[in-house]
């Protein structure tokens, strides 16, 4: 009996040692960790496209910058902002609002670049054919949405929530004016189309780029759901980098990073894929001051405190 007990003890000792080794093995990796750039993006694509987009981009960036590039799929807007704040992510593809939120929480962050379409971005209001809502010609026409069921996209979306709410407010429409006293949050641009098309909501609003893409793919039935108004232009998505990349990854790294994005060209096959997946012709220089209006609106609507 005693012998058996000793044996069991030995087995447990061995198991504990193995467990310890496994638990500490990642430390060994830290010591030899090479320089790397961790990138992420606010998700608004389907998984297959997202996988293709970011594995291609990581490869291409790694090739351009001669550095290891890792893509982390952070799928929650707030989590992406918080992870940027703690410095866990080096370079993030943010929307207008989330980018401003991230810059406020991480002072000194650098706006790197945006797509050609981002400097003049639009949202599009859509309506269901049974709602009786007619296309409108100006901002004040939004008043027809009073008493209708209305849905935004995601809470933190610039094109699916912030800017549309700003224009609704300008047209003197409060969220409590909608049927049911609230607006819905479908969660994504595609869900907005589906829910307005089904008639669950009379009207909704989404990112114009997504709308155009779905139209081109033939996924929208214009008889059932049609655009009623396009917002004036505003700035949206951009690449935002940590303030201290030059210190960690070598002097001039941030500039090199910016230039790499600006140099992406459709004549290069891999860069062509990246630009197409981003829905852009090219990346252009972006500046923090472009987003001041977004910050103001964010503060007015309580999305930035």
């Amino acid at each position: 009996m005693l012998y058996r007990r000793q044996n069991t003890y030995k087995i447990y000792q061995i198991i504990i040692v193995i467990l310890g080794l496994i638990l500490t093995s990642p430390f060994a990796k830290i010591c030899v960790a090479k320089e790397k750039l961790i990138i992420s993006a606010i998700p608004d694509q389907n998984p297959e496209k997202l996988n293709r987009l970011y594995s291609t981009l990581a490869d291409e960036l790694s090739n351009n910058l001669q550095i290891k590039v890792i893509y982390k799929p952070v799928i929650n807007y707030q989590a992406a902002v918080s992870a940027f704040r703690t410095g866990s992510l080096d370079l993030v593809w943010f929307g207008g609002l989330t980018g401003v939120q991230a810059r406020i929480q991480r002072p000194g962050s650098i706006v790197i670049a945006q797509r050609d379409i981002d400097s003049k971005f639009h949202s599009i209001f859509i309506a269901n054919h049974k709602s009786g809502i007619k296309p409108i010609s100006n901002l004040n026409g939004l008043k027809v949405l009073k008493g209708k069921r209305f849905t935004f996209g995601s809470e933190s979306s610039t094109s699916g929530r912030l800017m549309p709410q700003h224009y609704l407010t300008k047209a003197k429409l409060k969220l409590s004016d909608f049927k049911g006293g609230v607006a819905g949050f479908s969660g994504s641009h595609d869900a907005t189309i589906a829910l307005v098309k089904s008639g669950s909501y009379d009207s909704g609003v989404l990112n114009e780029q997504v709308w155009e893409e779905r139209l081109a793919q033939g996924r929208v039935d214009l008889k059932k759901v049609y655009p009623i108004w396009r917002t004036p232009p505003y700035v949206d998505y951009h690449w935002l980098a940590q303030p201290n990349l030059d210190k960690h990854l070598g002097k001039g790294f941030t500039r090199k990073l910016t230039n790499t994005f600006l140099s992406y060209d459709k004549s290069n096959p891999r860069q062509k894929i990246i630009l197409e997946l981003f829905g852009a012709r090219s990346f252009v220089k972006a500046y923090a001051y472009q987003y001041e209006a977004i910050e103001d609106i964010g503060r007015k609507l309580g999305k930035i405190r």
Binding site: D44, N46, K49, L50, K72, P73, I75, A79
Partner: peptide, 18 residues
């Protein structure tokens, strides 16, 4: 998904969004 670790939940959420 919040921690950028992926997982099947991330796949589900992304395909739900789109």
């Amino acid at each position: 998904g919040i921690f950028g670790l992926g997982g099947i939940g991330t796949e589900l959420q992304l395909s739900l969004m789109s």
